[in-house]
Measured scan of single mutants.
Amino acid sequence: MGFKLLSKLLVYLTASIMAIASPLAFSVDSSGEYPTVSEIPVGEVRLYQIADGVWSHIATQSFDGAVYPSNGLIVRDGDELLLIDTAWGAKNTAALLAEIEKQIGLPVTRAVSTHFHDDRVGGVDVLRAAGVATYASPSTRRLAEVEGNEIPTHSLEGLSSSGDAVRFGPVELFYPGAAHSTDNLIVYVPSASVLYGGCAIYELSRTSAGNVADADLAEWPTSIERIQQHYPEAQFVIPGHGLPGGLDLLKHTTNVVKAHTNRSVVE
């Protein structure tokens, strides 16, 4: 069995187990497998329904001669939608809004960016022009300005110390501490036991640490421990890039980060 097929099978099995364990909360999309990078042309966006009122959005972007996937989250909030992270750029984010209108038909009224990198804030200006209120932590807003990236308009308070959590509509926002970046936030959907790890969490097929220019490698494993301790009931975990899975993604990420750190020390 090929690795790609095995990865998709694991996603399907995880979703099936969740649907059985929580039949009222989960209505997993039966329309197909989780979209992969090879299936999404740059400039297009796919939506994948995880649970009743919960979707991931998947886009792709060219970077350094390669094409990478990027995940975000959409959560229903009454007759409105909360968006977590842009679709990595203005063109993708405009396509995301169009796809949401086509498939869901509810307005996106608020959006949260989970850290300051372009795959999370690139497209904020498109959201703002569409009347979406954009939010991020003060740290993310400051770092985005320093980096020359787009800056969300509103500040999220109460997320300055490791372990801080605040309720934001249908989700809980959690600051686990520094990891992929010093400002990275985690998003949890309690009604569906869905954990969105953003770039602080890796997919299972990833074996290298990737972009760690703004990471705190020493603190990252401790931050992941905080996530595990705060959300032990999480059933569906979405990484910032690639295929979702279960809580095993947290341990896998820790292993990859520690291996990278150990290699760096040896070198």
Rank of each mutant, 00 (worst) to 15 (best):
S38I: 07
I151M: 09
R120S: 03
G122E: 08
A90C: 04
T86C: 01
R206F: 15
S208H: 09
V124N: 05
A59N: 14
G158P: 07
S56Q: 14
T253C: 01
T134A: 05
S139Q: 14
L173V: 14
D214C: 05
E219T: 10
N255D: 10
P244S: 07
T109H: 13
H260G: 13
M18P: 07
P69Y: 15
D29P: 08
S27C: 14
G32V: 09
E99M: 13
V28W: 07
G246A: 10
S155I: 13
Y188N: 04
V126S: 06
R76S: 13
F63Q: 12
I151H: 05
Q103M: 14
A215T: 06
D216Q: 08
L6C: 15
K91W: 13
V75P: 02
W88E: 00
S70G: 01
V45T: 07
D29Y: 07
P152D: 00
Q235V: 11
T182D: 12
T182W: 10
Y68T: 14
G148I: 04
V265Q: 12
M18T: 11
S191N: 11
L127M: 04
S70P: 04
P23T: 10
H180K: 02
A144T: 11
T253M: 03
E203W: 00
V257G: 01
I224L: 06
P190V: 08
L97M: 08
L217Q: 06
D119V: 03
L24M: 14
F168Y: 07
V108K: 02
H57F: 02
P23E: 09
H57C: 00
G245P: 02
R206H: 14
I151G: 04
A192Y: 07
P239C: 01
V75Y: 02
V212C: 04
Q235A: 10
P35I: 12
L156F: 06
V146A: 13
N211K: 08
L5Y: 09
G89N: 03
V45S: 06
A234V: 07
G198V: 04
S223T: 13
G246K: 12
Q229F: 10
L250F: 08
G65P: 05
Y188W: 13
Y175L: 01
Y68G: 05
V266C: 04
G240S: 03
G89Y: 06
A95R: 12
E219W: 06
I74T: 06
S7V: 09
S38T: 10
I40D: 10
S22P: 11
A133G: 10
E225R: 13
G53L: 07
I186N: 04
L173E: 02
S223M: 01
P176R: 02
D85T: 00
N184K: 02
V112N: 03
H180L: 04
A25C: 14
A144W: 04
N211V: 09
G246Y: 07
V11R: 08
P170Q: 09
M1C: 03
V45D: 04
S62T: 07
A94S: 14
D79L: 08
Y48K: 12
P69N: 15
I186H: 06
G131I: 06
A179W: 04
S16G: 15
H260D: 11
T253A: 03
F116A: 08
V37R: 09
R263L: 14
D216F: 05
V42L: 07
Y12E: 10
T207R: 12
A98H: 12
S161T: 12
S70I: 00
R110Y: 15
A87C: 00
E172A: 04
I186M: 06
C199R: 02
A215F: 05
G242K: 05
D214N: 08
D52E: 12
G148T: 07
G105T: 13
V45I: 08
Y231F: 08
E267I: 06
D118V: 05
G122K: 07
I227R: 02
V171M: 03
S27M: 10
A213M: 11
I58R: 09
S30N: 14
F3G: 09
W88V: 02
T86M: 00
T261I: 12
Y175C: 03
I104Q: 00
T261Y: 08
G122D: 10
A66N: 13
S264K: 10
A98Y: 10
L97D: 00
A19I: 15
G245K: 02
G53S: 10
V187T: 02
T253I: 06
S38Y: 09
A59S: 15
Y34T: 15
A209V: 09
Q103L: 14
G53R: 09
T134G: 01
L6S: 14
I201K: 01
V67A: 15
G177V: 04
Y135T: 00
A98S: 12
V166L: 12
R46V: 10
R206A: 15
V166R: 11
T254S: 10
V112T: 05
I20S: 08
G246N: 14
K4V: 04
V42R: 08
K4G: 02
V42D: 15
A179K: 01
L127N: 00
V11A: 10
S264Y: 13
T261P: 11
E157H: 10
A179E: 04
Y34R: 15
G245Y: 05
V28M: 15
N211C: 05
Q103T: 14
V194E: 02
A218T: 11
A90R: 10
A136T: 06
P176L: 04
L159M: 08
L143A: 09
P41E: 13
A25S: 11
K8Q: 09
G177Q: 03
P170I: 08
E80D: 08
A129T: 09
T109V: 13
I238E: 00
L250Q: 01
I100T: 06
T36N: 15
I186R: 02
Q49M: 12
L173R: 03
L156I: 10
A218S: 13
L195I: 07
V11K: 06
I74R: 01
E39N: 15
A25G: 14
L127A: 03
N149R: 12
S70H: 01
E145P: 06
A192T: 12
V75C: 01
S22I: 10
E33Y: 07
T93W: 00
V75S: 01
L159Y: 05
L195S: 00
D183T: 01
D248V: 10
T109L: 09
E147S: 12
E101W: 08
G148R: 10
T153Q: 12
A165G: 13
G122M: 09
V28H: 15
F3W: 06
P69C: 06
A130R: 13
